[in-house]
């Protein structure tokens, strides 16, 4: 079975197939996002406590989910690339790093903006935000390592190991930050839970979550295609593509 998977994952094959998939994924992503925005900004009722500021949640929460989800995907893809030495898995791992870091950054910014009206300051050492900040450093570590190593293949394998080490540490870091948070501030006001989840608030949250997942798929495929072109630049099919491109 692995032999088949190895054949399928030939760069040339991957490049062609992903080229076909991207437009569909993009359209679906747009559709879900528009539906999510419509539901979130127009249909969902105003919250009796937070008024309309809670609508930031429809961007903040999916982004936070994505930051963790993408790190997991990166670690798993990296692991597969390392163990079975499948080039494509390595490429998918490293292509996820930048978009994962972007979602983490987005979660941090929107989290702090959402917190401002509630607590009056741009940053609060809330457990979730603090874990998100550390996750951002983990991502930046992966990206920095990838750029620091000259040889592309060694760089990809080094970052895969780092991602695996990181993914083992994420739950430990999260637990220790939760522990640290309850130690200093007590589990009171800074709970970040969404307001009493009214069903009509849940829909936009899920729609946006699906939209972000589709968006990740589009971006990771786009980046992977560039990485494939870069790595296969001496092959005939890439040379043909280059000629075509002019």
């Amino acid at each position: 079975m692995l032999r088949f998977f190895h054949q399928l994952a030939s760069p040339k094959h991957f490049y062609r197939i992903s080229g076909k998939w991207i437009p569909w994924l993009g359209a679906a992503c747009l559709a879900f996002m528009l539906a999510g925005l419509y539901q979130g900004l127009l249909v969902a009722p105003t919250d009796y406590q937070q008024g309309d500021s809670y609508r930031i949640m429809f961007v903040h929460v999916p982004a936070a989910w994505m930051s963790l989800f993408i790190y997991m995907v990166m670690a798993i893809a990296g692991g597969i690339g390392l163990v079975w030495r499948i080039k494509l898995a390595e490429i998918m791992a490293i292509s996820s790093a930048h978009v994962g870091a972007s979602f983490t950054f987005l979660a941090l910014i929107t989290g702090s903006i959402w917190g401002k009206p509630m607590w009056g300051s741009w940053w609060v050492w809330d457990a979730r935000l603090t874990s998100e900040l550390i996750l951002l450093f983990l991502y930046l570590g992966v990206i920095a390592l990838y750029n620091a190593v000259e040889d592309r293949r060694t760089a990809a394998r080094a970052t895969s190991i780092l991602a695996l080490v990181g993914v083992v540490n994420i739950p430990i870091i999260h637990y220790s930050v939760e522990w640290w948070n309850t130690l200093h501030q007590g589990p009171t006001v800074t709970k970040f839970d969404a307001p009493s989840i009214d069903f009509r608030m849940l829909i936009p949250l899920l729609l946006m979550a699906i939209a972000f997942k589709l968006f990740y798929a589009v971006v990771v495929l786009l980046r992977a295609r560039v990485e494939v072109l870069q790595r296969e630049r001496n092959t005939s099919w890439v040379k043909a593509l280059v000629a075509e491109h002019e």
Binding site: S53, K116, P117
Partner: peptide
């Protein structure tokens, strides 16, 4: 509802 700057900036 008064939170325009926060919501739209996000």
């Amino acid at each position: 509802g008064g939170y325009a700057s926060y919501v739209w900036s996000s």
